[in-house]
Design a protein around this nucleic acid. Structure first.
Lengths: 396, 396
DNA sequence: CAACTTTCTCCACTGAGTGGACAAAGAGAG
DNA sequence: CTCTCTTTGTCCACTCAGTGGAGAAAGTTG
């Protein structure tokens, strides 16, 4: 089953694998410039990696005025599977060892159906990708779930929106089914890793990645590493109080951010507004579809509907207030906004920025970019692939 | 001048020095159990440390059924200076290499007098400790200032309550004056390091340390290391909005936590209450002293004054709400409450606990102790000594 | 073809670290 | 007191990671 039987034997080899993953194919000489090793030692370690098959030398590069270099690259047949389980859909992608997405499919789904039903879908999607010729087998898989995870074991804990998943051995089950190593993490953390690897957060050490979808979560990256907290629930900002004595939330409290702004809350507020006759635009869409979603609000806003715009702005203000607090506390070098609601675009971003720049101190905001994620739905799957590759490209 | 000329030559030696600092005197055999080195190699490194004089072997320990062991300990003459500059007072202490406080003095002061005047006081306090025979010279000094610091350079940046300190080269100036290496940090971070080294936070990897004094700040420890943020302002929670459209704050905004609860805010509110005739107890104290401070409120509360208790409770609730948000976000393993206002004791702690346990999700609070710091004013100076010893006990 | 670059390989040498043998020094049993 | 066992510390030969220099291989430029 499992194909990538070899693992780097020491820290040098792990380092080399990551350099090749992040920097693409390279000559020995170029690798030598990026790693603190003599040419001799480097050659030895590369040789060993070639023996294991993790790395191949294919062809000669063009000369740069001297002897032509051998191109060293990660084994081109290596394949990682990235799975991003949201509240209402599944994303599955195949990547090569450089974490480039070779194929990506998406399906609607409801997490509340429980892990067994969801895994069936994931496996059939993986099979579909495999049968399309993108991969024979997978060398590793990363998977994100929309709730807190006990990271070392790869098991969800007390996930509010995923009844039936509590304690389910996701890592072990999927590893059995796929016949390869698996790592599990919170979906928000994977989005952060994705934007860090291939998106807006490259070369930023400390940043926050706020994902606004059905719920709201926040990935925290400290010194280039995802911070998960003591019990794996770090970044769970959806239940921070945004409005004193505000709307009741599913968690039992009142005024939680998530109760006031999220995909679900926005749909609810838009429906209310339509029923109260506040917006002809929204009412028409409700009439047509029978139900409203965040996408409808985005469309209405794009069409210039004042009510829709006001809803987005208010939600952005709430979110911005909470983020302002987090910025004061955490002093990040970057804030990334992502998730399904980014379809709301710059109206949302402007509202968030206004609040943060107004409320936080200049020292924290002076040089703080607040930007939309640039990878969209691929952030999660790339992050998932990166998670497992980080694991496999570390000393055994 | 400088006495501790030697520094550990490699990571092993640094590790050994820290083991001896944190675990006290030890035999070679016991050290071997705590470090991943063969006895032979260990003996070599210990021998080298003995040669440098950083470490001494004095006497034999009692036998445990075999050959008696030599006691290896850090040079008993090593002395660190810990300085904690608050808004209204200075704490200075001398410690030995194990960071035990040998002498500690405190003086009232006003940071707004500027760095030159304050440093004069610090130096005279240090001289006093020296002349009392506790130290001949200092091998290193750590200093905490009540504002953000550019850590690598040891320079305060844009400190709101310390006009005149912005950009002042604290590290370099003090190093010149004392003739020893100096490290500078935010006072709150030092308090966190102190409680981590010798207080309630031993053996906790991720925790928050909230210091409520003239202002409010929060030390953040991630994986045993202080997290300082991108510009050194991490943990600056005093200006998180606690009350929408609340009291005006010195920073220009409204409703900042610090404007509603802090030593200064409490004094102001108590004075108002006394003048409005809400509390005979507070009015009497105001009459007697001409002015009220947080200490008066604490005393009135201890005497059972309802108004004072209400003020403390309300402040605790505000603070607790903010901390609840931080707990959701950061998912710490411990929250420590410290600073001058801890004199308010369990009324304050109870209010904070109530808010946090009520508002944050069970997964984050399930096993979360919220406790008062156990070191009081020595936390800062111990943290300062630890800061410089961490620096000196690292490979050169 | 000569001169110069760049890349890669080979090899002798250094030095960190290991593990086992053994010496030193004590406790406890008979 | 002697013998055995335990604990601590020292010594030494050996392994292996890593270095740096010499030089071969394979180009470009003039």
């Amino acid at each position: 089953m499992r194909r990538m039987t070899a693992r780097p034997a020491n820290a040098h080899q792990a380092r080399l694998l990551r350099l090749l993953r992040d920097g693409g194919p390279n000559s020995r000489a170029q690798l030598g410039d990026q790693i603190d090793l003599s040419r001799s030692k480097l050659a030895v370690e590369v040789e060993r990696l070639l023996e294991t098959g993790l790395v191949v030398a294919d062809g000669l590069a063009a000369s740069r005025g001297g002897r032509r270099s051998h191109n060293i690259r990660l084994a081109p047949a290596l394949r990682f599977l990235g799975v991003d389980i949201g509240a209402t859909s599944i994303d599955v992608a195949v990547t090569n060892a450089e974490l480039e997405v070779l194929g990506h499919i998406n399906q609607p789904m409801d997490v509340r159906e429980g892990p067994v039903a969801v895994f069936e879908q994931v496996l059939s999607m993986a099979a579909k990708l495999r049968s399309s010729g993108l991969a024979e087998e997978f060398d590793g898989a990363g998977i994100g779930v929309p709730g807190p995870v006990r990271f070392p074991e790869g098991v969800p804990v007390a996930p509010p929106i995923m009844p039936g998943w509590d304690g389910f051995p996701v890592r072990e089950a999927l590893s059995q089914d796929l016949g390869c190593p698996v790592m599990v993490d919170n979906d928000v953390n994977l989005m952060a890793m994705g934007e860090q690897h291939a998106g807006v957060a490259r070369s930023v050490g400390d940043f926050l990645c706020v994902k606004i979808g059905t719920g709201i979560g926040c990935g925290i990256v400290v010194g280039g590493e995802v911070y998960r907290g003591t019990t794996g629930s770090a970044g769970d900002i959806g239940h921070i109080q945004a409005v004193p004595d505000g709307r009741p939330c599913a968690c039992g409290n009142r005024g939680c951010l998530e109760a006031h702004f999220s995909g679900a809350a926005l749909a609810r507020d838009a429906t209310e507004a339509a029923q109260q006759g506040l917006s002809a635009e929204l009412a028409a869409r409700l009439e047509a579809a029978g139900t409203l979603s965040a996408v409808d609000v985005a469309a209405a806003a794009a069409a210039g509907d004042a009510t829709a715009l006001a809803l987005i702005r208010e939600g952005g203000n709430r979110t911005g207030q909470v983020i302002a607090g987090l910025v004061s506390f955490f002093n990040p070098g970057l804030v990334v906004i992502g998730g399904g609601v980014t379809g709301l675009g710059h109206t949302l971003l402007a509202a968030i920025r206004t609040q943060v720049y107004r409320q936080s101190l200049p020292l924290a905001t002076g040089n703080l970019p607040i930007v939309l994620g640039e990878l969209g739905p691929t952030a999660g799957v790339i992050g998932a692939a990166r998670l497992i590759s980080d694991h496999l490209f570390s000393p055994a």
